[in-house]
Design a protein around this nucleic acid. Structure first.
Lengths: 332, 332
DNA sequence: TTGTATGCGTTATCAT
DNA sequence: ATGATAACGCATACAA
């Protein structure tokens, strides 16, 4: 009655196989070992149902094959999708993920970063809007969507090109007079790039445009007021609208319905995000799709290649356009 | 130049504070220590920015304050919400979460369970449809939504009561002839309970009902055919429909629109799930809401109370009804 | 009350 | 090529 309830250790395997401790370690780690020894050890492992204790491994090697993901929540579709794809990318490399859902609360974020430090994670991937987060010098950190300073790589989708693409699409689809709608703290700069790209696209195509930008707390009704102002004799003067997120597009679609505007016949709408409803069924609206899976892969790749010659400060991944029923196009 | 890049250890703190190793340990763990010593140790901790290494702790105590969550994916709203709330419940108790997104793939599931074992997690919360998963005897395991055998507690929402509630609501709202629509493997028994509860509710209210149940691979078109069969002179014979999930309800709403049936004027629709779109804005449809946050809390609570006198085999949490625009009710 | 020493499971450096 | 042994960072039983 030695250790019937605690899990078997290498020592147990060694005793069972009648070999030394070091030999078992070598077999487990795939180092060269004499064939008969190897067989006996493997049989003992089978018999005892032995599994290495990665905590002991981590203690020794100070590499834990675990990374922490800091994310505001797992519920918004874009975040949910990010979590999913990062998890996959890690699993492929036999890495584990410590999930840290922060609610964008600075206290929670810091608490989680400390936790991560205690757990000696090999690195952190973080999507946070907190500019003055204290990150340990030694811990590899990759930021998503938001630059955290020059020493930290940031992976994001090409927001500028996305805005531009939206403008070009609307122009291609026959629009003459379009609007840009946005809500969100002006501190965050990524939406600003969407806006800049959109303006750029409109100018290069000679597309007339107007903008309506709300701050974070503002009521959506202001958009309705804005649109109502642009209706004459029941007809909206815009024939195209670019919304800074799919979420906003969804709200605007409802507003347009209330205002008796048909989509896409009277006015076409393009959003930004590209995360589909209900897993992977269909888009809410025509949209600029962020390459979530590529973003995930890039983050993990960058994080794990420790001996990187240089750390790229900002990596923009290409976006694409997807039809979702709110623009004039063939249904497929 | 001893250890300028590796993190400081208790030994470093002890040297800095001029006390013994054990004293530092006691301060860190809140054990009684003389006030002046305590102060010096705390100052040293501050100065060196020391953090305990929870891997070393775990190795010693064989308790790691980490649990693993096995879940098909993080993208479907119900799952996403579950992940979010379980994460919160764990954080409150200073526990960490190892996220294991499995795609319902038995291979991945087993791989993750092994990983979890290697990591010596303190327990596993799992939502899996794989009945013959090999779970270590010693590891505490809580199942969500699906019974994994008599020795493992299962937490779920009260699906039977939910079905019943849907029937009663439809009756209350004036329905006379209703339909139950379901898609999904008949092996899973929770949807069966929704069905049984619904039938029960219909019978007790004298509500006439029909059922249409599809298997997993079947095309949605069969629902459309079913509904079309029940249209005479443009009028659907059903005035109420209960869909087994919000997801299905969403599809059915589109179908009804194609068939020129107005919702809720001609026919009222109730779904099941209650996870809202876009984080927390609004429901897709009127629905039976699962108490996700309570489910999460219950799982964590059960998992962590190790000295439980008895393990309840099945715990059903109460559901509620929420208006979502597809039933005849006041907008609020 | 504080300091010292041992062991947790693993890996790596030694002799053998 | 294999076996013994030290060390990783921490907690704790024991000695001072």
């Amino acid at each position: 009655m030695k250790k019937e309830l605690s899990a078997p250790t290498m020592k147990d395997v060694a005793r069972e196989a009648g070999v030394a401790l070091g030999t078992v370690s070598k077999v487990v780690n795939g180092l060269p070992v004499g064939e008969p020894y190897k067989r006996r050890v493997e049989e003992a492992i089978q018999k005892l149902n032995y599994q290495v204790n990665s905590y002991a491994q981590g203690l020794k090697a100070s590499r834990t094959h675990t990374i922490a993901l800091l994310i505001p929540n797992t519920v918004e579709p874009f975040f949910a999708s990010l979590v999913y794809h990062i998890n996959l990318a890690l699993l492929r490399r036999k890495y584990r993920m410590l999930l840290c859902s922060t609610d964008s609360d600075p206290g929670m974020e810091q608490e989680y970063i400390d936790m991560a430090r205690q757990n000696k994670v090999d690195g952190i991937i973080g999507l946070t809007y907190n500019p003055n987060l204290k990150i340990e010098e030694g811990t590899p950190f990759i930021a998503i969507d938001r630059s955290m300073g020059p020493k930290i790589s940031c992976v994001t989708s090409d927001n500028f090109a996305g805005g531009q693409l939206a403008a070009e699409k609307l122009a291609d689809l026959g629009c003459k007079n379009v609007a840009f709608l946005r809500i969100g703290s002006s501190l965050t700069n990524e939406p600003n790039k969407r806006k800049a790209g959109f303006e750029n696209g409109c100018l290069s195509r000679g597309l007339h445009y107007e903008m309506k930008i709300l701050n974070d707390g503002d009521p959506y009704e202001e958009f309705e007021a804005f649109l109502t102002e642009h209706i004459q004799d029941g007809k909206l003067s815009f024939d195209g609208i670019f919304c800074v997120t799919d979420h906003l597009a969804y709200e605007i679609l409802k507003t347009l319905r209330r205002l008796n505007q048909r989509v896409p016949e009277d006015v076409q709408v393009i959003g930004f995000d590209g995360t589909r409803h209900f897993g992977s069924l269909e888009y809410t609206c025509s949209t600029i799709v962020q390459p979530v899976s590529e973003i995930a892969e890039m983050c993990v790749e960058l994080l794990l290649q420790e001996n990187a010659p240089v750390k790229p400060p900002l990596i923009c991944l290409p976006v694409s356009y997807a039809y979702g029923g709110t623009t004039l196009e063939e249904r497929n």
